[in-house]
């Protein structure tokens, strides 16, 4: 049974931590997104043809959103659990009558909330540079929330696995960001020469970017249901890993 008061305490405290650095947390993605739009949208985009009937500046919005979403969600969540482990304050969580439910909903929920706030900010920023509309807004919100949940869980696992700051940063830096860049953020997979268009399908981020792009413009490189399926499978896998971690106490309890 979930203790909702405990959950709310964890959730609000994590959000407070976010608000303490709100200026940096909000300004950085706004600035980065603006730069991407200036460089790719205005400078290069003006010379690019429409892709699937979508203006290039608008085409890159879902990819840019995914780029920020994956990076911020993973790092927020991983830092959220790693810092208490690093500073020793995790004793309070472990000695409290809270289980995996309260912990996950609290930490992951807060990481999701932060990411959704950032997603909204990025979409508003994009509006300053590009005119776009969202074909399936409800599905877009659901999809963004699913991806945020999945990568919050992934970040949570990362924060428990890491035993130093280097490990904490290595996965997002060496894997997530490159895979997102190569996952069709700035181009359609159809634009790649053979056999790279097939090889690109081995990159799981392709399905995420493609899925979000479908909710925006109604067309994508990959079938939307495959994207949903892969996202849900990733979510389930991460949940399973976390359940195992809590059951065994791996890296949490001595």
């Amino acid at each position: 049974m979930i203790n909702w008061r405990s959950t709310w305490s964890i959730y609000t405290r994590e959000l407070m931590r976010f608000l303490r650095t709100a200026f940096q947390s909000v300004l950085a993605p706004v600035l980065t997104t603006s730069l991407y739009f200036i460089v790719f949208g205005a400078a290069i985009g003006g010379r690019m043809p429409d892709l699937g009937g979508v203006d290039y500046g608008a085409f890159i919005i879902p990819g840019l959103l995914m780029l920020t979403l994956l990076g911020e969600t993973t790092s927020n969540s991983s830092f959220g659990i790693y810092m208490p482990r690093f500073t020793g304050t995790i004793y309070e969580l472990l000695s409290a009558p809270v289980g995996v439910g309260e912990t996950l909903i609290g930490f992951v929920g807060a990481a999701m909330t932060k990411s959704l706030i950032l997603a909204a900010i990025i979409l508003l920023t994009a509006r300053l540079f590009v005119d776009y509309s969202i074909a399936h807004p409800l599905l877009a919100i659901i999809y963004i929330m699913l991806v945020a949940a999945a990568f919050s869980l992934f970040g949570f696992i990362l924060g428990i696995w890491a035993d130093n700051f280097e490990k904490l940063g290595i996965i997002p830096m060496l894997f997530l960001t490159p895979l997102t860049f190569l996952g069709g953020t700035f181009y359609s997979i159809d634009m790649l020469p053979k056999p790279w268009d097939t090889i690109a399908l081995a990159n799981p981020i392709v399905y995420l970017v493609s899925g979000l792009r479908w909710t925006f413009y109604g067309s994508s490189d990959v079938n939307i249901w495959i994207s949903f399926g892969i996202t849900l499978a990733f979510l389930a896998a991460c949940t399973g890993v976390i359940a195992y971690i809590f059951k065994t106490g791996w890296r949490l309890r001595a």
Partner: peptide, 16 residues
């Protein structure tokens, strides 16, 4: 970084 009162209130909430 947390103020004293908020830290203590958090502990109370954490215990439900």
């Amino acid at each position: 970084f947390e103020p004293v009162k908020r830290a203590v209130a958090y502990s109370r909430g954490l215990f439900g």
